[in-house]
Nucleic acid binder design. Structure first.
Lengths: 247, 247
DNA sequence: GAGCGTCAAGTGGTCCGACCACGATCGCCC
DNA sequence: GGGCGATCGTGGTCGGACCACTTGACGCTC
């Protein structure tokens, strides 16, 4: 977030460009955890930018836990998995212009957990208005999916996100709201990448309809199961079961 | 992370101090979403620091989605709940030196989800070694809890975290690993704040023992239930059931 | 009077060069 | 050889200048 705006060919700020370059090298392992980065002065010379800009770029990387700057000592790369925050997710999942299958799978797995839990909590806390709102989105999804309304995969993806966001709102859990902001980053950074999920026939609005029904009846377990099924649809479609259980 | 080091009276970097001050004002609502911050030059004058330092502080806030800087326009405060990332959690939960009950509750709720899911996934993927490692920690917990070994609440807290971290490792899900890094921030920023959870008798190692058994038997549902019970112990202890269901 | 182009002021973005504070290292002294 | 201090290189701060961009007020046209 914040530093988003990853528009294709837009003019990027100098600092963001440098940060992006370094981030890529680190994420791809070209620099490696524990290694020391060149000094700020060296980087400034190499990239032909001012040291201030270098510092700004480095600070961005430090903010997400990618590097560690120590006064007097060298600036070193940290181990992504033990120090980086979720802000890095978008860059890990969509690295080098392609989706990384391993990371995508991990994301989809966690997504199943989220969806299931959101369903459960929503069933406990939804007001009549909330149910109505969810139902409206689910209804639209069914129409688009069945072809009664146009829009195709793009519309499905957008509506599916709306449903998820609405569900999160219903849970009234603000930690989940923050988490959703991060997920949105992954989701919207490059929507085209995820379109496949909605094109392979993996998307099935029926689970969402079931979930809405369960929420209306305050059936927490039922809502959880329905949302879990929804999430596993995408997971199974992209990672067939016969390959599961082993990693 | 990274900008952590919230040591009590330590010498803080100029930029970090300013960032901390502004962050507090924003989180406390003293500035309000949508409002414009004073210009960088004004802030520099008011805080008697260089504009470079002001910019560094602002960039830190921008990195976590707290503010939005626009070239040529004003720097405005964003709505925390729709744009901030999880990096803010530590500051939201422990704001003004005290734990915010509402946020703490949201955190504990999400914790239940994590624990439950970790248990489930761990049961599916644990190797014999993994089980052994988990069991060792659980065993230590039982000993400390029963008084056979000393350490008290502090040791319980530490071991409980170790168990959680080990469980996350067993799931082999890297997204969860990143998430855990953030949780660790909340957890370790000021451990004393959370000690109450382990002192009220809310902590019950028996659930963890059950979870380990379930994992050994590859009983995913059982492990999920045990870990859920573990998480709900803390939730129920701090937020009695009679107050639940309504917010 | 309404609409629109122009321009000036103010903002954030970048650059430069200098100095300060701190860590690590090497080499001297004991 | 072991301890210790000068030195060098690092990140941190400073200040002041200029560039790029947004904004809004002004004055012009119609």
């Amino acid at each position: 977030m914040a530093d988003g705006e990853g528009k294709g060919a837009g003019k990027a700020r100098v600092a963001e460009e440098l940060a992006s370059s370094l981030r890529e090298q680190i994420v791809d392992g070209a620099i490696g955890a524990g290694d020391a980065l060149p000094s700020e002065r060296e980087l400034a010379a190499k990239f032909e930018v001012n040291r201030s800009s270098v510092r700004e770029a480095l600070h961005r990387l430090e903010a997400v836990g990618l590097i560690e700057m120590k006064h007097g000592g060298a600036t070193r790369v940290r181990d992504v998995l033990v120090s980086a925050g979720l802000h890095l997710l978008p860059f890990l999942v969509a690295r080098g212009g392609r989706l990384d299958p391993a990371w995508l799978r991990d994301v989809l797995e966690v997504r199943v957990m989220f969806l299931s839990w959101c369903g459960e909590q929503a069933a406990r806390r939804a007001s009549a208005d909330d149910v109505e709102r969810l139902e409206a989105i689910a209804h639209e999804l069914v129409e688009v999916h069945s072809g009664q309304r146009r829009g195709g995969a793009k519309a499905l993806m957008s509506l599916d996100w709306d449903f998820f966001a609405a569900l999160v709102a219903v849970t009234q859990n603000r930690v989940l709201a923050l988490l959703t902001n991060v997920v949105r980053e992954v989701h919207t950074r490059d929507p085209a990448k995820f379109k496949a999920i909605y094109e392979d026939g993996a998307f099935e609005p029926k689970h969402l309809v079931r979930a809405v029904d369960a929420v209306r009846k305050r059936d927490a377990a039922g809502a959880a199961l329905a949302m879990r099924a929804h999430g596993e649809g995408a997971l199974v479609a992209l990672f067939p079961p016969n390959a599961r259980g082993k990693r």
